[in-house]
Each structure stands twice: as structure tokens, then as C-alpha cells.
Design a protein around this nucleic acid. Structure first.
Length: 264
DNA sequence: ATGGTGGGTAGCCCA
């Protein structure tokens, strides 16, 4: 059994106490983090060592973005893409070497895309769409059992948001983004594994805005975080959990962890 | 229709 988690942590240095609590209480073998907001040199390596997560691949950046995968089973860094060729650290991939040997785990942080869903008026929205197109080109050539996890910053299904109609023109749920995400999915035949295990139209969110006084009030969530698998790997998934309790913790991230267990 | 809250880092960018 191999237990893999993903969490947009929104500053790993600020939230190391919450990471420690999550690792202690849920004990995933591997954890992929997004928005670590630090360079590799300032990553809290010692704290992860103490918890037994002695294997790490960190693709960091000062102040913004940044991704890392930490593990208590051996791994080696496999890929480190810069899809926009602009120095933003948004992707790191690893190959598992112990249990789950041979499996590739890709960890990605898709750009949020700004506020206006129009490529002409908003450079960042175009960059988000281009990012997904490049990911689709890359995914077409993947020939190994792969799990891709992370903050995709898109909630594709109607039931992935608290109000479909109200969010149709809100970046993260616009048809043009969902089409781009569909092209990425079809390029490899990815299985949206989270949705396999929590089938539509069941409620399934991973993010709630900080801007609501009480995140539970109105439950205005979106499913921005994902775990997608190659078909052969998808068949080995055993169970899936959304750890919503972390959203109640002191100084919490606005995203909550997703956990998937595999028979590997 | 608007602004609401966070994090990082130096007067804003990004989410």
C-alpha cells in the first residue's frame, strides 16, 4: 500500500506546524506541496527529516509559487519543467524507487490566471491557457504509469463548484479553461481519479476563499486540486479522502489536502 | 456592483 497526498500549502515555512500535524495524523508515504513560496535552500528540510520524510525533490522560487515532493520512501527527481520558460517554479516530478517502484509522480501548480477570463485583456489568462497546451503536448508522449497531482486552478464539472451558473465567467470555471483542461486529459487518457472515487454529482471541494468570514457559511467551495492517473495506475487506487478538517486549523491554508491510497 | 482576506517582500505582486 502506498499513500500519496497533495496540498497547496500557501507558504511551507509559515505553515510547517500544520504540515507536521497533517503528516502525524494521516501518515502519507509521499506528500506533494504547491506554493511553498521559498527557494530550496530555505525549505524546512530538518523538520521533514525529523518526521521521517528523508527523500525530497524541491523546485523552489523566492516569494512566489514553488513545488516540492517529500517522501518517506525512496525517490529520485525525474523532471523539473518550466512550461512558460519564465523561471516560475511550477512543476517537479519524481520516480518512486521503493514501494510503488517505477511509478512517476508529477507535481504541478497551474497558474491561477488573473481575474479577467480574456486573453486579449489579461496576459495571465493567456499564460494559463498556454501552460495547459504545453502540458497537453508533453502528456501525449508519456509512456510510463504516472500520477499527476496538484493545484490545477480549474474546477471542471458543474458539481465542482458551489454555484455553476454564478461561476461560469469566473476564472477557474470558464468553458475555455475547461476545454483546455479536457485537451490535456485526452492527450494522455488521464483518469480523473478523485472523481472516480467521489463520483459526480457528489459534493467535492478542495478550496474555500479566505474572503468569507466563515468558510462553512454557504460552503462556497471549488475543486481546484486534483489527482489524475494513467489508466493502468487508476485501477490500483483503493480509497480517497479530502481532509477538510485542516481548513478549521489555526493559520490554515485556503486549500485542503487530498489523500489517495494505492495497492502497489 | 463591489470588496472582502491572506502571504511574501519591499512598496507592490500574487493568490
Amino acid at each position: 500500500m502506498v499513500k500519496i497526498a497533495t496540498w497547496n500549502i500557501n507558504s511551507v515555512r509559515l505553515r510547517m506546524p500544520q504540515v507536521e500535524r497533517f503528516l502525524t495524523e494521516h501518515a502519507p508515504d509521499v506528500l506533494s506541496l504547491q506554493e511553498i513560496k521559498t527557494v530550496e535552500e530555505l525549505f524546512p528540510h530538518e523538520a521533514f527529516e525529523k518526521l521521517g520524510y528523508t527523500h525530497r525533490a524541491v523546485h523552489g522560487q523566492k516569494g512566489y509559487h514553488g513545488v516540492a515532493t517529500v517522501s518517506r520512501i525512496p525517490l529520485r527527481e525525474f523532471s523539473r519543467h518550466d512550461w512558460q520558460d519564465n523561471g516560475e517554479a511550477r512543476h517537479v516530478g519524481v520516480e518512486l524507487l521503493g514501494p510503488g517502484q517505477g511509478m512517476i509522480l508529477e507535481n504541478v501548480y497551474v497558474p491561477a490566471g488573473g481575474d479577467t477570463p480574456d486573453r486579449e485583456q489579461n496576459l495571465k489568462f493567456g499564460q494559463k491557457l498556454d501552460f495547459l497546451e504545453r502540458m497537453a503536448f508533453w502528456a501525449d508522449a508519456i509512456d510510463r504509469p504516472t500520477l499527476i497531482v496538484g493545484d490545477f486552478n480549474i474546477a471542471p464539472l458543474e458539481c465542482d463548484v458551489w454555484n455553476h451558473k454564478q461561476l461560469l465567467k469566473v476564472v477557474s470555471h470558464t468553458p475555455i479553461e475547461i476545454e483546455a483542461l479536457d485537451r490535456f486529459r485526452n492527450a494522455h487518457g488521464w483518469v480523473d481519479l478523485g472523481r472516480e472515487l467521489i463520483p459526480a454529482p457528489e459534493r467535492y471541494y478542495s478550496w474555500w476563499s479566505y474572503r468569507a468570514k466563515d468558510w462553512r457559511q454557504g460552503d462556497r467551495g471549488r475543486r481546484l486540486d486534483h489527482m489524475w492517473a494513467s489508466p493502468q495506475l487508476a485501477a490500483q487506487a483503493l480509497n480517497h479522502q479530502v481532509i477538510e478538517e485542516t481548513r478549521d486549523w489555526e493559520k490554515c491554508s485556503d486549500h485542503v489536502p487530498l489523500v489517495m491510497e494505492f495497492d502497489l
